[in-house]
Design a protein around this nucleic acid. Structure first.
Length: 259
DNA sequence: ATGGTAGACCTTCTA
């Protein structure tokens, strides 16, 4: 089973590019972030024609997440627990049916910039809610994949120019500590399990020629429960997609689980 | 050198 995560930066503006990738790669499951549309505007038919079941947690203009699966999605949850007062659509979860059911959570973690503002406080509070939810899910002792745009650069090696990110919310000690805290619950970071991964970055800014200069960062991650990590066979960053026509600033990251 | 681009949308916000 191949599970993809991809921040598409508007699914409707990007539809041709996104469908081209889906037609070629045919992932079994995909979590999309920053769809930037309400549920009714999500191009569900285009994905259904490719054989996908669709679950959407949309929002006007900003944010919005979706999950696509070749097999039916069960037990769909939209939003993290304790969400009163939080109107951002940033989390969707479902159990992907099959011989070995896999629970998948799709994450669009808050950016948090600029630091020292309520936006950074919101990021950390959201990460705390994710931590508590992940703890509850791990207690189920199921195959679990929490993937998405975490908006966290875990380590200096995950940035082409780490010094350029020192004042950024994505690389603050608090953000990195919260990400480590998630992993310390017993979640495995899929990318780090793969030897000889040729490319480290998943995001290159549209500005200042970041792609041409390879000024990238690795912020899109798959975290796996022990029951999922035991089945991990591959983790691939689809770097070339950043060079396509009308690209997202993020590229797909795909894991393969033996199920 | 505080630039630069992209998307949604009412003119600025978010990233």
């Amino acid at each position: 089973m191949r599970i993809a995560t991809w921040n598409v930066n508007s699914v409707n503006a990007r539809l041709e590019t996104v469908l081209r990738w889906f037609e070629t790669e045919q992932p079994d499951v995909a979590c999309l972030q920053e769809i930037k549309c309400v549920d009714e505007k999500f191009p569900a038919e285009a994905f259904e024609r490719l054989g996908y079941n669709v679950a959407v947690h949309g929002q006007k203009t900003y944010n919005g997440v979706a999950m696509l699966s070749k097999t039916p999605l069960e037990d769909v949850r939209k939003g993290l627990p304790d969400g009163e007062g939080d109107d951002h659509a940033r989390y969707i979860e479902a159990v992907v049916s099959g011989p070995v059911p896999v629970r998948v959570g799709g994450i669009y973690l808050p950016n948090g910039n600029p630091i020292g503002t309520e936006k950074f406080a919101y990021k950390l509070a959201w990460m705390d809610r994710l931590h508590r939810h992940a703890q509850a899910l791990l207690a189920l002792e199921e195959p679990l994949v929490l993937c998405g745009d975490y908006n966290v650069i875990p380590e200096p090696r995950d940035a082409d120019k780490p010094e350029a990110w020192l004042g950024d919310a994505l690389f603050q000690p608090e953000s990195r500590a919260a990400f480590r805290g998630l992993k310390n619950l017993g979640l495995t970071e899929a990318f780090l399990e793969i030897d000889g991964a040729p490319e480290s970055y998943t995001f290159w800014d549209y500005q200042a020629g970041a792609w041409n200069r390879n000024h990238g960062i690795r912020i899109d991650h798959h975290l796996l429960s022990p029951q999922a990590a035991d089945r991990l066979r591959a983790c691939v960053i689809h770097r070339d997609v950043r060079g396509w026509e009308k690209p997202s600033d993020h590229v797909p990251v795909v894991i393969e689980l033996e199920v």
